[in-house]
Design a binder for these strands. Structure first.
Lengths: 191, 191
DNA sequence: TCTGAATCCTAGCACTGCTAGACAATCTAG
DNA sequence: CTAGATTGTCTAGCAGTGCTAGGATTCAGA
């Protein structure tokens, strides 16, 4: 039935409209500003409509997070493919990571800071989550001596720490490049 | 006047009572559960009393954070003094850091995750903040080749990343020790 | 005991997430 | 084309939030 599919398409469009509005609002005014009323007003519907698409507000943030992870994975791929050797690959990914976090703080927060129901380490983990992790792993692995998984986790943690502490104004607002180089030098093994 | 001082002492006691209640509530049910009403009930006063001691709820969390930073600094000192050489010092501090974050997640969140008005890098930074940072710096410095400040920031970032990603269930729930050893090995320079 | 000051609480505002129930639009079947 | 069922949407409301104005109460000093 074409009627049904048209309806479904309209529904799908409205879903993305909501996500788009939520993301824009979060990026411009922070997640605290993303309330049901403001979001409903932004998409020109009443609040209950939101609950027809998402279980609750947290589910909206989770959906934005999933979108962001797919984006981030693409950013990683681009960074990796632009590099000519292993060291350049590591540096490019690190730089790309910190840039993404800096330019999309709200999406970054939804992905890696906010409390979320998304399962990261489990078997039901969405493929996109493991995809992103594997991209990091790919650039870290050449420098691993024994346990690439742990090394990847630690490298990611360092990037995450730099991103969040910087955003929270807990690190010096300068020396971005110095921190990046310091991090990279410690992971390529002091050559 | 002894009357005045007794009053002031009572005021001070109530202030610490509030902080104690806030901290306990946050640790047992999370910061979302620390509302003015519940907190007021816990200390057996009405909400407005809270505002006689703190500008707003965020100021209460900030006060808990300051307390925590003093605690953490002591933990650092103990870890450092228990170590016999530089490598052991680095490892001991890292271990102590992650243990503290794991055992006091709410205080940790107040210190390093929640949005805060506390100034970290500026001149008006409370001394306790720089004290804690300097403790980290002290164990990192022996392994610095050129820029100890940046190296300290990166080491702290890695610890912070591991702590928060672990708490948010974004890293494997196992391999704690492996991550710690991996981190330490990268900072002592692959000996 | 009386007076002025310090202290504390009740009540309320504007906001939050979320939902029940009324209403309107649309599709289906006769 | 119409009657009935199904969707879709909105209004209104609940229980909770941070925070505050203003009145009641207690207390200190004369």
């Amino acid at each position: 039935m074409p009627t049904q599919t048209r309806r479904e398409r309209a529904r799908e469009e409205r879903r993305t409209l909501i996500l788009r509005a939520a993301r824009d609002l979060a990026e411009s005014e922070g997640w605290d500003a993303v309330t049901t009323r403001r979001l409903a007003e932004a998409v020109d519907y009443s609040q209950p409509v939101l609950y027809g698409h998402f279980k609750n507000m947290d589910a909206i943030a989770d959906a934005v997070a999933l979108e962001g992870i797919a984006e981030l994975t693409e950013v990683f791929r681009a960074a990796r493919s632009s590099a000519t050797d292993d060291t350049a690959g590591l540096r490019a990914l690190a730089q790309a990571y910190l840039e993404y976090a800096d330019q999309h703080p709200a999406v970054y927060e939804a992905m890696f800071v906010r409390r979320t129901d998304l399962q990261f380490g489990r078997s039901e983990t969405p493929a996109s989550l493991t995809d992103a992790f594997n991209e990091i792993r790919a650039v870290v692995e050449p420098f691993a001596t024994d346990d690439p998984e742990s090394l990847t986790e630690v490298f990611w943690s360092a990037l995450h720490g730099i991103a969040t502490l910087t955003h929270g104004r807990r690190l010096r607002s300068t020396h971005h490049q110095a921190r990046l180089e310091t991090l990279v030098s410690r992971f390529i093994g002091n050559k």
